[in-house]
Amino acid sequence: MTDYIIRVKNLEKNYGITKAVDGVSFNIERGKLVSILGPNGAGKTTSLECMEGILRADGGSIEINGEPLGRSRRGWTDGRVGIQLQSSALPSNLTVDEAMRLFCGYRGIPARTDLLVRFGLHEKLKTQYCNLSTGQKRRLSLALAIIHNPEILFLDEPTAGLDVQSRLELHKIIGELKAGGTTVILATHDMAEAESLSDRIIILLHGRVAAEGSPVEITATGSSLSRITVQTEKQTIAGLSMQIPEVESFHHNDDYSVLFSRDIEKTISALLKTIKREDDRLIDLRIERPSLEERFVEITNGSGQIKEVVS
């Protein structure tokens, strides 16, 4: 039986007459990293903040560790939950060391200087928050969110606005947390980040779940064509590719034949038969599935129309 640490059922949240979250349901497995994707206003942060207990849901239910989240019991009050908010800050003149001691104090634990070392902030102990770089601020924020070794960690766009190096550093840390058994719920706009880090992806659109599945499942189920790049000794493929029924289009690029197929398995099989029949020899073969970004664009269809729901 699957061990779900979070269960969200028919979650609803309204801001006035606007339905920010409209009947969202999903389950999150213990120890997995789940990304919540969606365009601006899709309901990512609202859903996250309902799970965190910062916002009160107007309908539906949320269970954390099998216990319902309610007015008397909120996510952040649970010692097993860690939260890094999208828009939060620390007092500008609070030093890294003071921040760590202060928040550990509120959790009733000794200062976690080990985390500052791990997150590369040990040389910034006396630096005030306002003098840290954006990457350092995010790392400090993440360190403070996990001082109590939470079982569940909510991260709301943790890498927004970071340079490539800081982003990679943060990805490494998130990966380590997941490897350590922490369940991570990540809201992000970054498709590459979601694709590389996530076990599962939930795409929200207009406050509803538009797609849900593993990154491979999500990218595989769309109508986008897979790209197959082939190089053979005699280049026999060039003239025969369009005879394969599953190939939608073809072009030649240097010594390579590039095919766009709607069925990888059948196309590859046909290609290999053709190469053998023509007494040719395969030099290179590459298969590229549509990226999550392409699939995301397809789901949101540019105009925001839901095209398909994967479950």
Partner: peptide, 16 residues
């Protein structure tokens, strides 16, 4: 300022 800049939100989730 602390309220509008998110400092209080940060305090809240850290149980201040």
């Amino acid at each position: 300022n602390d309220r509008t800049s998110g400092i209080y939100r940060g305090y809240r989730v850290n149980r201040v």
